[in-house]
C-alpha cells in the first residue's frame, strides 16, 4: 500500500509531502490499518480549518483521498500523519 500525506498551511505556510510504500516495512500492518481507518472514517469534501492551522490530504494507492485539518484530528489521523511525515512522538 502506498500512503501519501501532504500537509499545508501552518504559521510558516510551507507545504510538506511524504509518501511511504508499506511493502516490506516492519510496521506495514499497523500503517495499513491506520490508513484504512482514516480514509474510511474521514468525511468526504474539503476541510475548512482555522487560521494558521495545518491542513492534511491523505491519499492511499492513488485512489482514495481524504482531507482534514487542525484542530480536531482523531487519534488515527494524528498517528498516521505523524508516522508518514516522520514527526511527533
Amino acid at each position: 500500500m502506498r500512503i501519501r500525506v501532504i500537509r499545508s498551511g501552518g504559521l510558516l505556510g510551507m507545504p510538506r509531502r511524504a509518501e511511504v510504500d508499506t511493502s516490506g516495512l516492519p510496521d506495514s500492518a499497523e500503517l495499513e490499518r491506520l490508513a484504512l481507518e482514516v480514509v474510511t472514517e474521514t468525511p468526504s469534501g474539503a476541510a475548512p480549518g482555522v487560521p494558521d492551522g495545518y491542513q492534511y490530504i491523505v491519499t492511499v494507492d492513488d485512489r482514495r483521498s481524504v482531507q482534514f485539518a487542525d484542530p480536531g484530528l482523531s487519534d488515527a489521523q494524528r498517528e498516521l500523519v505523524e508516522r508518514v511525515l516522520g514527526e511527533g512522538a
Binding site: G10, L12, D52, G53, D70, P71, E87, A89
Partner: peptide, 29 residues
C-alpha cells in the same frame, strides 16, 4: 503543549494554541 513535538501555533476561533516545537527545527512557539 498541544500535541507532541508539534511545529505550529494557531488561532482556533476562540483561543491560541501552541505547540512545543520539535527542538530540531522549531523552538517552543
Amino acid at each position: 503543549h498541544y500535541r507532541r513535538s508539534f511545529n505550529n501555533a494557531f488561532w482556533d476561533g476562540e483561543r491560541m494554541v501552541f505547540g512545543d516545537g520539535d527542538g530540531l527545527v522549531f523552538n517552543d512557539f
